[in-house]
Design a protein around this nucleic acid. Structure first.
Length: 278
DNA sequence: ATGCCGGACCAGGTCCGA
């Protein structure tokens, strides 16, 4: 199974190149972020013509997550348990949830398309929200991997953290003043992994970024960030046989500022002729 | 660098992103 994630930064603007890439790369399941539309506005036709069905979670022009899959999707969830909400000008629990998470099960694999809050600035209430979001996501992963350790689980999406200095090639993103690289955000990301996930791409793709700012010639200068990940529980991560970051998708007309990240997962199939009797 | 791009709203100006 070939599984990918892509922050498309408006699916209505990017539908052509998104479907073209999926067909070219033989993608079975794509997790999208920042679709920036409601389900009734989603351009479904090109996906369906290419043989994909859709699961869409969008509330307005902000955020929005979706899946396109060639295989049937089950158990669709519009939030993970305990997922925080956020309301501008208000703090505290029980605020309305934004469209930042979508869960589906495909071929026995639990998949999430996640758009982690940006944080906006160090000290901004939105940063408190971001860190709380990480806390609650971590708690979900702990519970899930403890209760169902045999179920392959993958968190895919835009995590809005560059976990190490090697993941930050943007000279304007500086530890001490910038979001995405602060010790608190990096600790939150590390704690999420400690809950039972592995970065499935890094071991196979040791360098490269997944995002370049539109401004300041960041892409031609290759001054980007690696903030888009496919994080897998043990049974998922052990089944990853290939991984790639598709830098070329940042080129050409009207690209997203993010590029897709793809893994090949070879999970044991019931019809395999493996020597199970051993 | 707090908005130099780019998208959504929807008609000129604001909000948002990392």
């Amino acid at each position: 199974m070939r599984i990918a994630t892509w922050n498309v930064n408006s699916i209505r603007t990017r539908v052509g190149r998104t479907v073209d890439w999926m067909v070219r790369e033989d993608v079975d399941v794509l997790a999208m972020q920042e679709i920036k539309c409601k389900p009734e506005q989603f351009p479904t036709e090109l996906f369906e013509e290419a043989g994909y069905e859709l699961a869409i979670h969008g509330l307005n022009q902000w955020n929005g997550v979706a899946f396109a899959s060639r295989l049937p999707m089950h158990d669709v969830a519009h939030a993970f348990p305990g997922m925080p909400g956020f309301l501008k000008g208000a703090e505290g629990p029980d605020q309305p949830q934004e469209a930042r998470a979508l869960g589906v099960t495909v071929d026995g694999v639990r998949l999430w398309s996640l758009y982690v809050p940006n944080g906006r600035a160090l000290g901004d209430p939105h940063m408190v929200y971001k860190l709380d979001w990480y806390d609650k996501l971590t708690e979900y992963v702990r519970t899930e991997t403890h209760e169902r350790p045999e179920v392959p689980l993958a968190l895919m999406g835009d995590f809005n953290v560059a976990p190490t200095d090697a993941d930050n090639g943007d000279p304007s993103v500086v530890v001490g003043t910038s979001t995405h690289v602060s010790p608190e955000e990096r600790a939150a990301f590390a704690t999420l992994l400690d809950a039972g996930l592995a970065d499935t791409v890094r071991p196979l793709v040791p360098t490269g970024y997944t995002y370049w700012d539109y401004k300041q010639l960041r892409f031609p200068r290759n001054e980007g960030l690696r903030i888009d990940f496919i994080l897998g529980s043990a049974p998922f991560a052990e089944a990853v046989t290939e991984a790639s970051i598709h830098r070329d998708e940042r080129k050409g007309d009207a690209p997203s500022d993010h590029v897709p990240v793809l893994v090949q997962v070879d999970l044991g199939e019931a019809d395999d002729d493996l020597p199970m009797f051993l």
